[in-house]
């Protein structure tokens, strides 16, 4: 059985003008997809194609205008209280903007502790130890636990959010451009962590991005979106070859690996000082 699936999902936002006329803006049309346990799926598309909206529908943060999202075969809209809590625990999300995703008045330990309190049965006495372990997984040092969000860099705070997503031992983590703001070596470190969790603990990932290089590195399957529709669903091979026009456009826009031109070194007025 698929872990999470979407069936004929449509989603509209309504726009109200100053004169109270309402117009519906279609964001998603007729989207169906399935996510299997342990699989890493890329959701690729340019900005405005609806990939973040789809991520929010899949995690139950919004309800689709039409169609259903199903968690282990059961529609999200009809889950009872216990199943809903189970869904909350097992499907986690990491957002693009970490500053907007944490309470600025809580310490890092309190931020990561929240899902432990609300979604797990772990006794309080063992929270501190678990928090240190989670920080380590995300590549952060234990003393970080006592700091506040404003004392952290964007990259550190994003890794706190990743640690928080791991806290409840989820089955699926939805990453909405969650590594885009990190330096490249940290992006790669996080991707390697995701691959390890998928391999060793069967955690599935939905990896929302516009960067084909990252999909190629970590995903086993990729969905390409264009203007609210899924236009391609392909297994990832190296090198990745996409057939839809949108997929090809995204592939062509990938930045070059190496400089094309021969160097145009010039005479300098003053040599750079190297320290």
């Amino acid at each position: 059985m698929s872990l999470l699936s979407a069936r004929d999902v449509h989603h509209h936002y309504s726009r109200t003008s100053l004169f109270r006329t309402r117009t519906a803006v279609a964001v998603l049309e007729d989207v169906s997809l399935e996510l299997q346990p342990g699989e890493i799926v890329g959701l690729l598309g340019r900005s405005g194609c609806g990939k973040s909206t789809l991520a929010r529908l899949l995690t139950g943060l919004e309800t689709p205008t039409r169609g259903e999202v199903l968690f282990e075969g059961a529609a999200l809209s009809r889950l009872d209280k216990a199943r809903r809590r189970d869904f909350r625990r097992r499907v986690q999300m990491v957002f693009q903007d970490p500053q907007g995703a944490v309470n600025p008045r809580l310490t890092v330990a309190e931020i990561i502790g929240e899902p432990l309190i609300h979604l797990t049965d772990l006794p309080r006495a063992r929270h501190a130890g678990r928090i240190v372990k989670l920080l380590k997984r995300a590549g952060l040092a234990a003393p970080m636990a006592h700091r506040y969000p404003f004392e952290l860099s964007g990259g550190e705070l994003q890794r706190v959010c990743i640690a928080r997503a791991l806290a409840s031992n989820p089955s699926l983590i939805v990453l909405d451009e969650a590594v885009s703001n990190l330096d490249l070596h940290l992006q790669i470190q996080m991707l390697d962590l995701f691959a390890l969790l998928s391999r060793e603990q069967g955690v599935a990932f939905l990896f929302v991005t516009h960067d084909l290089r990252l999909v190629e590195r970590v995903c086993s399957r990729v969905l390409v979106m264009e203007r609210g529709r899924v236009v391609e669903n392909a297994a990832v091979s190296a090198p990745l070859s996409l057939v839809s026009s949108e997929g090809r456009a995204l592939a062509e826009a990938v930045l070059p690996a190496l400089p094309r031109r021969l160097s145009t070194a010039r005479e300098h007025l003053a040599p750079e000082r190297v320290c």
Partner: peptide, 23 residues
């Protein structure tokens, strides 16, 4: 850098550590 630069200066901890043509 590969797409656009002619020369590159690499900084770390407030200092330029290396300066060279992009190639």
């Amino acid at each position: 850098v590969a797409r656009l630069a002619d020369r590159v200066l690499v900084m770390d901890q407030g200092c330029v550590q290396e300066s060279a043509p992009v190639e």
